[in-house]
Each structure stands twice: as C-alpha cells, then as structure tokens.
Design a protein around this nucleic acid. Structure first.
Lengths: 217, 217
DNA sequence: GTCTATAGCAGGATAGAC
DNA sequence: GTCTATCCTGCTATAGAC
C-alpha cells in the first residue's frame, strides 16, 4: 500500500498548506519558506509552479476556495430540491445549515470564512472571484426564490439588505468564534451549531416579516 | 499663527499614522519605515517611544481604539438617557445609530471597524482590550436593559445570540462596504446610512419577536 | 520537475553623535 | 528626544546542476 495520506503532487501540497496558512495568518504574515517547508518540498517549488507568491494566493482561491463555495451552493440547491413546496423558512434553513453544518468539515469551514473575511475587509484581485462569481449570483438566485413570498411593498434594495442581514449573521458566527466562544462559553460542537442554525432561522424569519412564518411545513 | 494642522508631538503623529496603516493594510503589511516616514519623523522614533513594532500596535488600541469605542458607548447612553421611557425599539435604534451615524467621522468609523475585524478574525494581545474591556461590558449592559422587555421564555444564551445577530449586521455593514456597495450600487452617504439604521432596527425588532414592537413611542 | 546555492534587497532593531 | 549610520536577519526570486 502506497502512502496516500499526503498528496503525492507537490503542487497540490503547496496549495493545501498555502491555503491553511493564508487563512490563519494572512497573506503578509506567511512566508514562502513556511509554506514549502510544511509542504515537504523545496523553496523554489512555489516559483516554479506559480511564478510568485501573489499568484499562489490567487490560485488558492481558484482551485480551493471557489470549488468549496460551489459545494455550499449545491448543498442549498439540494436541500430545496428535496422539498415539494418551498417556504421562506425552508430557504433560510437551507442556507444557514449549508454554511454552518453543510458539506464542509469544521476545518474547511474555518479556512473558508477566514479567507472570505480577509477579502471582504481588504479586497485583492481574488475579490473578483468572491464577489463576481459567487456572492452576486448567489444573492440573485436567492432573491428570485424568496421574493414571491414577501410582501409586495418590499423593494429590491430592501430585499438585498435583508439578505445581507441573514448573511452577516452566518458570516459573523463563523469567523468571530473567539468572541462567540468567549461570550457564550460554548464550544463549536454539533449541538451548538444546530442551535445557531435554529437561532438564525428564527431571528431572520421574524426579521423578514413575522407574518410569513407559518406558511408551510 | 503656529502650524496646528499636524500634531506637534512625533509620538502622537506616529500613533495616528500607525493606526491608519494597521487598519487599512494589517499589521504585517505595514513597515515601521512607512509609519515614520509618513509621520515625518525618524525611523528610530518607534523604538524610542514604543520599544518595538508590536508594542506600537498595542498602544494604538490603548490610546486610539479604546477611547473611540467609549465614545460610541457614551453616545448610546446619551441617546437612552434623553428618553423618559425606554423601549426595545429605542435601544436598537440608539445602538445602530451610534455605530453607523454616531459620534465618529466616516474616516474614524472605517478605521475602527477594520481594526476590530482584524482582531476578531485573528486575535492578538489587543483582543483583551476589545473583548474584555469593551464587548463584554457592553453586551452585559445592553442585556440588562432589554431583557425585561423580552418574553420570559428567552433565556440568557438566546438573548446573547440575539445581540450577536444585531451586532453582526452593524459590523458587517461597516466593514464589508466594498461588497455592500458593489451589490446595492449605493455609496455610503448620510442618506444610505440612515437607511441602513432603519433597516437594522426593523429587521432586529421583528427578529427579537415582533410582538414587542409597539411597546412605546 | 526538483534540488542547492545565492543574489539582492527590505525588514526591525540598536549604537552613539548631537 | 531626535538624528545618522549600520547591523543582521529573513525575505522573494533566480540561476543552474541534476
């Protein structure tokens, strides 16, 4: 049996380590030496495979972050497809659950949101992928699904702000764990994540206009 | 007339420039050379006044970030004192407005939240100030004010999560401006900020349990 | 494709004159 | 307190052997 624990391709190992380190410490705090050492290959490998450090960072988004974002979006789709009737409640639950409990492992989730927050706070070239290819289509699609259920008076901007609100909770509860743990005294285990999903759904459902609560299920 | 445009004390000028740069680019992306050059003083000044770069970063939180956080908290207090009867609506409005329109200038607000998000995403020693001296007392105080208005069934953890929800919106709408601007197409002028405050109040009020909406005013 | 070796430079920090 | 000059570490990137 050949060792399969670590990827056999140095290029892939570099991408894995780079993502981990960029997420945890930020672009400038990470050195190419650190990445290549942890990836078990030579310093020059980064330049050979990616040209330079900046390009490696971009490649992390293209080959790691982006596919994972797609996995989350697919999880939302799948959760909604399996239902006959769609309700706002179901949509919010599907979204919150996909992000907080969904297809990613805990480790992946942490990486994913850390990278995302870094780009939101201080956009680089990678922001184009995050915003243009993921966020915009995602919000657009979600808006189209839930707008028929909402009061006619809710205009497009209001809908967008509401989706931001929901998304901000999801984001916050994922990336500000240190604060959440400190102030609630709870660890991020499965039970707590389920609790968070429940809270987000309830809070958002009311926030979107409590009247629509009992529409289905 | 003596020139008062720039602070006469190099120590203060260093703190000002350091804050601006740390907020915009992050600790590791900023060099001591850049700070001292922009502060119009010598490279050695940072080591003389603060010992080293890390200590300067900490001092930025102690002498700049912390007082500003207090100004926001005072603004909340003041807004609530001026009312005879306190309602949940009034509390949420006071908080949202203090953070989004309050005593800070636009420039200060941007710095403030960028620094805060950096610490939330990746805590350093400064997190002790942010969490221990500001967030914890703030949430505790707010909780004490609004809990009497809430349904008895809402336990302490639920209350904490609700406050997180409100806070996450405020935080998100302040730090993820690039995304908000991109997806709504609106600039952060006074009108839009007022709109955001209105949205947060409405969304949160419902989120906390729509029934309590008309309690006062 | 992967390595060693090293160029070339920018970073934080300090010593010591003024 | 503020400056100049400098040390030295650690960085990215490349050249060239294998």
């Amino acid at each position: 049996m050949v060792q399969k624990d670590k990827n056999e391709f140095p290029r892939e190992r570099i991408l894995d380590e780079a993502e981990l380190l960029f997420a945890r410490k930020g672009y400038h705090a990470v050195t190419v030496r650190e990445i290549t050492t942890r990836a078990g290959c030579n310093l020059a490998a980064v330049n050979y495979h990616f040209g330079n450090k900046e390009n490696l960072y971009l490649e992390v988004f293209k080959t790691r972050w982006f596919p994972r974002a797609r996995r989350i979006m697919n999880a939302v789709d799948k959760a909604l497809e399996s239902r006959e009737r769609i309700s706002i409640s179901a949509v919010i639950h599907a979204v919150a659950s996909a992000f907080l409990e969904g297809p990613l492992t805990e480790r992946e989730r942490e990486l994913h949101f850390q990278l995302m927050v870094r780009e939101l706070a201080q956009p680089t070239e990678a922001f184009e992928i995050v915003a243009g290819q993921i966020m915009q289509p995602f919000f657009q699609k979600l808006g189209a699904i839930i707008s028929p259920f909402l009061p006619g008076k809710m205009d497009e901007e209001q809908l967008m702000l509401s989706m931001f609100s929901v998304f901000s909770m999801i984001l916050h509860l994922n990336f500000a764990r240190v604060a959440v743990t400190r102030l609630t005294g709870r660890e991020y285990d499965a039970a707590f994540r389920a609790r968070l999903v429940g809270h987000i759904v309830e809070f958002s459902l009311n926030g979107l206009g409590g009247i629509y609560r009992e529409e289905s299920e």
